[in-house]
Computed example of a mutant assay.
Amino acid sequence: MTRVKICGLRCAVLAEQACEAGADAIGLVFYPHSSRAVSASQALDVIKGTQALVTSVGLFVDPQADEVERILEICPLDCLQFHGTESAAFCEQFGRPYIKAISMRPEIDIDALLQEHQGARALLFDAWRPDAPGGTGDTFAWERIPVLSRPWILAGGLTPDNVGTAIEQVAPQAVDVSGGVENASGEKDPRRMRQFIDAVREADRRKHEDAAV
């Protein structure tokens, strides 16, 4: 089954609704320039709204190490997600599994990043825009993703309308959505969250039916 991460949650009620809809992970944004940013204390409240076994993921963009440590002292994140130019050594120092985001710039050297971040729990492929590290609502050419034998996550402009096609075409282990389930920037819509997860499960059902033929 394709795992689903709902990113950019900011309150416990919506986190609970995301979990009830079937989310496998929730994302908490610690990038102050984002409309979805939360403080460590806000993030702790959000985590309290999640169900057991739902993974909490903290998203950072080129943070200082002491900033990450301060947040971890307050908020017991299960996993860290790095969206900047962080080195593998930086990502590995916090004693948490980590996800390394790869923004699909035209000149990106994917092989070099794969080689450097061998210790990452997963790679996340996201759309690129020069003025934002993620959460843009843009898609990218999915065929640019190399064939991988390690876990990876698809992000970038996913919605209830296109996530089924994405799963059919590139079969990611997981999908990550933020703006695609909002009714305004930073405001999650419970109905769209459920529609998104339903679309993922329907795509999984079709995939398994096709495999059984």
Rank of each mutant, 00 (worst) to 15 (best):
T2R: 06
I6L: 12
I6M: 05
G8E: 01
L9E: 06
R10K: 14
A15S: 10
E16R: 08
C19D: 04
I26M: 09
V29P: 00
F30Q: 05
F30R: 10
Y31R: 00
H33C: 00
H33V: 00
R36Q: 02
A37Y: 00
A40G: 05
A40R: 01
Q42T: 13
L44N: 05
V46H: 03
V46G: 07
K48I: 02
V54Y: 09
V54S: 11
V57E: 01
G58N: 01
L59E: 02
V61Q: 00
V61W: 00
P63Q: 08
Q64L: 14
Q64K: 13
A65D: 13
V68A: 07
E73Y: 01
I74Q: 12
C75R: 07
L77Q: 08
D78I: 04
D78L: 03
Q81Y: 09
T85P: 00
E86T: 07
E86S: 07
F94P: 12
F94M: 11
F94L: 11
R96V: 02
I102F: 13
S103V: 08
R105H: 14
R105A: 15
P106Y: 11
I110C: 15
D111G: 15
Q115T: 15
H117E: 10
H117F: 10
A120I: 09
L124N: 10
D126K: 04
P130C: 10
D131E: 15
P133Q: 06
G134P: 04
G134V: 03
G135P: 05
G135I: 04
T136Q: 01
W142F: 12
W142Y: 14
I145L: 14
P146I: 15
S149Y: 08
W152C: 09
W152A: 10
L154T: 07
G157A: 09
P160K: 03
G164Y: 01
Q169K: 15
V175Y: 09
S178M: 02
E182N: 07
K188V: 07
D189E: 10
R194N: 10
I197M: 09
D198R: 03
V200H: 02
A203C: 10
A203Y: 08
R205D: 09
E209F: 01
